[in-house]
Structure formats: structure tokens, C-alpha cells
Design a protein around this nucleic acid. Structure first.
Length: 193
DNA sequence: GTGTGGCAGTTAG
DNA sequence: CTAACTGCCACAC
């Protein structure tokens, strides 16, 4: 994770006349809770089911510039509230969300390749960590592919819950129960790739 | 089922 | 530079 890239992002925001006000909020959809970080340009820059990851992402930004601050935003005026509501009720299979997160650019080459290939997994489908490693061009980097999944800064939008072990579910930063529920929600049956 | 060694990428020191 | 740590896999019992 390149701190320099993140710092650059903050500098660019400042130069463009933004004050570094971010939204930090937890939103609830039935049994799911997502933790969002939203940038000054209203883009989601970080999304996770794991509160500790959410904290960490905030600390990273705050540590790079004194002017960074976080405010909350009520769920009913959250720009993508309907979108997530529809997804979590099984009525949406693709996110019409412009993803523009500095945490992607701050990732390593390998991580970015992994995230790219995860993004291509269709709704309701899955691939294995092994296949993902192959697609990312490092067939033997199976464990590394797993850790790259865990480092994914945009849960759901980059659907890392659709990556499973050859035998079993594998892991999930936001808890295995959530991963299981997401796959069930999507009507997951078998590998599609 | 369970042990265990190997693995590649990332991070901390 | 090492060493430690993973959302794993293969291959043994």
C-alpha cells in the first residue's frame, strides 16, 4: 500500500479547492452493516464489512494530512442508499456506482491485478483463490491472492466474497457469516468461470 | 478427517 | 537485508 499515492491524492484534492472533509458512516441493511468512507467528491473511496478495516483506512488518511476530517451522513440522504438497499434485498445484480478510490491506486501491481479479475466475476458466481492467482499471472501465488482479497478496499463493488477456496469457503474480513449470507443472497450455485 | 511443508507477496523492523 | 504473516493447496497418513 503506497502511502505516497494517498498523500498525492490528498494534495490533488486540496489544489482543486476541496477541503478534506470525508464522510465516515456505518449503514445498516437488514442483517448487514457496511462501513463507508466517502470522499469530498462524493465518491465511495472505501467500503468494508469489517469495522477495524474502516478504522485503519481513516487513520491512514488522517495521518497524511492534518486537514483531513470525518463527518457522518444520515443514511436516508446517503446517495447510494437505494442501490445498496436493492442489492441487499436481492433486487440488484450490478452496482451503478462510479468507483474512484485512491486506495485502489495505492495498491501494489499484484493487488490491482487481483482486484481487476475479481471485478469480472459475475453475480451469483464464484472462482477459487487458485484460479484467481492464475488469472493474475502468478499461478503459484495462491496464498498471496488470498491476502490481496483481504486487502480489497471496496467490498461488494469488488466482489471478493465470490472468491472461495477449492474446498470450503475460505476467509472473509467481515466475518464468514457475512460471506455465506452474501453468496446465499446471490443465489450462488457453482463456479461460473 | 488431521498434520505438515511449501508457497508468493506484503509488511515490519 | 531477514523474518513473520496470511481469506491456500497438495499430499500424505
Amino acid at each position: 500500500m503506497s502511502q505516497r499515492y494517498l498523500k498525492n491524492y490528498l494534495q490533488k484534492l486540496s489544489k482543486a479547492g476541496n477541503n478534506l472533509n470525508f464522510v465516515s458512516a456505518a449503514y445498516r441493511y437488514g442483517k448487514f452493516t457496511i462501513y463507508c468512507l466517502i470522499g469530498p467528491e462524493e465518491n465511495i473511496i472505501h467500503l468494508t464489512f469489517a469495522p477495524n478495516r474502516h478504522e485503519l483506512a481513516q487513520k491512514q488518511l488522517a495521518g497524511l494530512d492534518q486537514n483531513v476530517c470525518f463527518k457522518t451522513l444520515q443514511q436516508d440522504v446517503f446517495r447510494y442508499n437505494i442501490v445498496f438497499h436493492d442489492y441487499f434485498t436481492g433486487n440488484l445484480s450490478r452496482f451503478p456506482i462510479k468507483t474512484d478510490s485512491p486506495f485502489i491506486g495505492a495498491g501494489t501491481r499484484f493487488q490491482q491485478r487481483v482486484w481487476h479479475h475479481i471485478s469480472a466475476i459475475p453475480y451469483g458466481c464464484s472462482i477459487t483463490y487458485k484460479r484467481l492467482a492464475e488469472l493474475a499471472g502468478s499461478p503459484k501465488a495462491v496464498r498471496a491472492a488470498g491476502t490481496a482479497c483481504g486487502a480489497n478496499p471496496l467490498a461488494l463493488i469488488i466482489p471478493c466474497h465470490r472468491v472461495v477456496a477449492q474446498k470450503g469457503l475460505g476467509g472473509f474480513a467481515g466475518g464468514l457469516a457475512a460471506k455465506k449470507s452474501l453468496l446465499a443472497l446471490e443465489g450462488f450455485k457453482n463456479n461460473c468461470i
